[in-house]
Simulated scan of single mutants.
Amino acid sequence: MKDLIIQIVKPLVDHPDAVRVEMVEEPSQITYNLSVHQEDIGKVIGKKGRVAKAIRTVVYAGAGLQQHKRIYLEIG
């Protein structure tokens, strides 16, 4: 799932080398922490959060089929 998030985000940003995804797994949930270069946060979030919502939709759909835990994507 980390690879999917990276492949979605890298083409959107000006600093693709700064894209990092960290996974934190707990008994009932998995949280993916996405970090990008400070200048690229606006591009990943998009106007009114539309890009972030689209990324989350893809991640939740893909992960929901594989895991029986709640999936969260945090962008920062």
Rank of each mutant, 00 (worst) to 15 (best):
V9G: 03
G46N: 04
A54G: 15
I75C: 13
I71D: 02
V58E: 05
V36L: 05
E74D: 15
E25I: 11
G76S: 13
Y60M: 07
D17V: 05
K2D: 07
L12F: 08
L34Q: 05
V19M: 01
K2S: 05
Q66L: 14
L34I: 10
T31K: 06
I45H: 03
G42A: 08
M1H: 10
L73E: 03
Y60F: 13
L65T: 11
I5A: 01
D17W: 06
Q67V: 15
G46W: 02
I71V: 15
Q29R: 15
V24A: 10
P11L: 08
V59Y: 04
A61P: 00
Y72E: 14
Q7F: 12
H15C: 13
S28N: 12
V44G: 02
I41T: 07
K53G: 10
M1R: 02
L34V: 10
D40P: 09
E74L: 11
I5V: 07
A54V: 11
T57Y: 08
V59I: 13
E22P: 01
I6A: 08
I8K: 08
Y60A: 06
P11T: 09
P16L: 03
Q66F: 13
G76N: 14
V51E: 06
V9C: 09
V24Y: 14
G76L: 12
Y32E: 02
I45L: 07
Q38M: 10
L12H: 09
H68M: 12
K47G: 10
P27S: 07
S35F: 08
I55M: 04
L4G: 03
I5K: 01
D14A: 10
Q29S: 15
Y32V: 03
I55K: 01
E39M: 13
H15Q: 14
H37P: 04
R56A: 02
I71L: 11
D3G: 12
R56F: 06
V9I: 15
V13F: 04
D40F: 12
L73M: 07
L4R: 03
D40N: 14
I6M: 13
I6Q: 11
V9W: 01
T31G: 01
I71E: 04
G46H: 03
Y72A: 11
K43P: 03
Q67G: 04
